[in-house]
Amino acid sequence: MKKLICSLLIALPLTTHASSTLRCDSGLISLQDSTSIVSSKCGEPISREFVGYREVQDEYGFYNEVAVEEWAYGPRNGMFQFLRFEGNRLIKIDSKRGR
């Protein structure tokens, strides 16, 4: 699966478009949606990669370690969507056009 992602990234140009929402077949997803909401609205991604852990600070000033995952969807109308999750919450949506 890692080879597939690497192949996709090599074939894509360097330009990226970040967004706060993404339309899937079954609705709209937004930043801060959970992994279960995204998966129920968008289905299974073409790839799902565990990136590692990241330390984040909560609203009380405490630090917690959260898991980081990246999911890829597409191509849809020539675009690939890359979603980044931290602590099972969607924090970033990038779209890249394939060649």
Rank of each mutant, 00 (worst) to 15 (best):
L12S: 14
T15V: 08
E70W: 03
G27W: 03
S30T: 13
F82S: 11
G27L: 10
Q81R: 08
Q81E: 09
P45L: 07
R89A: 06
S36F: 09
L4T: 10
L90W: 02
G61S: 04
S34K: 05
I10R: 05
T16M: 07
D94N: 08
R97E: 15
R76N: 10
T16Y: 04
L31V: 08
K92W: 13
V66N: 15
E69L: 05
G87S: 04
P45K: 04
T15R: 10
F82H: 06
E69A: 08
E69F: 13
P13L: 07
K41H: 07
P45C: 12
K96Y: 09
A72T: 13
C6N: 15
G27K: 10
T35G: 08
G78E: 04
P75A: 12
K96R: 15
G43P: 13
F82C: 04
F82Y: 12
A11T: 05
R97A: 15
I46W: 01
E70Y: 05
R54S: 03
I93S: 06
S7E: 11
L14Q: 13
I46S: 05
H17V: 14
P75Q: 11
H17Y: 13
T16N: 07
P45Y: 10
K2H: 09
F85M: 09
V38H: 04
F82I: 14
E44F: 10
N88K: 09
R54L: 03
K3V: 01
G61D: 00
E69P: 04
W71A: 13
L4E: 00
S40A: 15
I5S: 03
S47Q: 11
S20L: 00
F50G: 00
V66Y: 08
K92S: 08
G87Y: 00
F85D: 02
I29N: 09
N88Y: 09
G87A: 01
E49N: 07
H17K: 00
F85K: 06
F85E: 06
L4M: 07
F50L: 03
I10K: 11
K96M: 15
S95K: 02
S95P: 03
Y63K: 05
L9S: 08
L83G: 02
Q32F: 06
R23D: 15
I37C: 08
